[in-house]
Simulated scan of single mutants.
Amino acid sequence: MKASLLLCASLAVLLGAAGPAGAEMRVLRDSFDGQSFSKEGGLYYKKNFEQKAGIVEFQRDVAIRGGALKLSVKPHCPAAETLCSERAEIWEKPDLRVPYNEGVWYGFTVKFGAPIPQDDHRYLIAQWKREIGPEAEGDFSPFLALRLRQGKLFATVETNYIAPQATLAAAAPEKTTAPCASGETPVWLRPETNQMRALVATDATWTPEDGSLFSSCTSAISVIRHGALPSPDSGWIDFAIFTRPGPDGSGHIEVFANGKPVVTVRGHIGHGDKGLGENQYFKFGPYRAANKDEWTLYYDNFRRSPHCKDVLDKGECPAL
């Protein structure tokens, strides 16, 4: 009897039955050519109050070829609820999520609908997060996010708060405006939430004033910039992104846009707080703080794989 139980347990681990560890290796693809999400894509539209602001349309008027997904948000939040957001986000199915400590490649193509917002209402177009368990305390930001501010595209990486070096601390880091030294990365320190957010990539129109929030520097996150992000008004943008969180300093992110490398990020990436879940997960679509008017994005060619070659359609895969 004991031998049988041990054999079953071993098989469960190998096959992924003891958790999602076997499901994350499944290659996911959806070209959005049909009238609903494909079975091969593993995606769904989550229904909750904030997602009621969303409009989802499988359409063919704006697409690379065939069909594409049109996602829009409209005003929805009550005026009294200042923390309410408006979302039209597409999620991975929970049973297909990737373990938090494993690396995985994601790809998708996005086009900004007109008009492109020129204000600052916490706009996101894609985000990667860690599952939040029932025992976790606090609200955890995405460990990687592609964002829009005043019509400019940028990327941020989040991790647990790490106190800055003594030289910066003595200079009141919240007011530091000088460029970071070699080996350091601009960061927004948020000790009250045990988090800090690093600025890791921007488009070519970004100015120091746009990054004024990232007023401190950290050596806990290292960034090698290879190029700029495309401008939001440049048409279809194809992203290929590798994520492997590591709150202990072992994290690694690679961002490609239109087949060209944009940034390599290593170091402390993601959150290690008590009560957080075992998996990372990806969601894409327009997300903003409450605002007026509609905001639209088009998405096509979603893919996910443990292998770069399945995701980076053009360009050379990096050595990981």
Rank of each mutant, 00 (worst) to 15 (best):
Y106W: 11
P117G: 00
Y123L: 03
Q118D: 08
R97G: 08
G133I: 14
D119W: 04
A136W: 10
Y123R: 03
L124E: 02
W128R: 10
Q118A: 14
D95Y: 14
E92L: 10
V110C: 11
F108K: 13
P99I: 06
K129Q: 08
W128C: 07
K93H: 14
H121P: 02
P117D: 00
G107Q: 02
E102M: 10
G113M: 12
E131G: 13
L124V: 01
D119S: 02
A126G: 10
G133L: 15
R97L: 09
L96K: 01
D119A: 00
Y123I: 00
Y100A: 12
F108D: 08
I132F: 14
P115E: 02
R130T: 15
Q127S: 12
R130G: 15
G107K: 04
D139F: 14
R130A: 14
L96M: 05
Q118L: 05
N101H: 09
W128S: 08
E135V: 05
R130V: 13
G133A: 13
V104P: 02
E137Q: 12
G103T: 01
W105Y: 15
R122S: 10
D139R: 08
F108G: 01
D139S: 15
I116S: 08
E137S: 13
Q118R: 13
P115D: 00
A126R: 01
I132H: 04
A114F: 15
D120P: 04
N101S: 15
A126D: 04
F112H: 00
V110Q: 10
A136P: 11
K111I: 01
I116V: 15
I132L: 12
E102Q: 10
Y106K: 09
F108A: 06
I125N: 05
D119Y: 05
A126P: 09
L96P: 00
N101C: 14
A136Q: 06
Y106T: 00
Y100C: 03
G133R: 05
A136N: 08
I116D: 03
E131M: 07
Q127P: 06
D139A: 12
E92M: 08
P117N: 00
E102S: 08
G113K: 02
P115I: 03
G138P: 13
E137R: 07
R97A: 04
E92P: 03
K129I: 09
V104F: 00
T109G: 04
I132A: 15
G103Q: 02
D120F: 14
H121F: 02
N101F: 11
I125G: 06
I125W: 04
E137D: 14
I116E: 01
P115L: 12
R97W: 10
G107E: 05
W91M: 12
D95S: 11
Q118Y: 03
P94D: 10
E92T: 05
D95L: 13
P115W: 04
F108Y: 14
Q118S: 14
T109S: 15
H121M: 01
Q118F: 07
F108W: 14
K111P: 00
D119G: 03
K129G: 02
W128Q: 09
K93D: 12
P117Q: 01
E102R: 07
P117E: 00
K93T: 03
N101E: 09
R97K: 15
A126L: 03
I132D: 11
E92V: 04
W105A: 07
W128G: 03
L96A: 09
T109R: 09
K129V: 05
F112N: 00
W105D: 15
P115T: 01
D120N: 13
A136S: 14
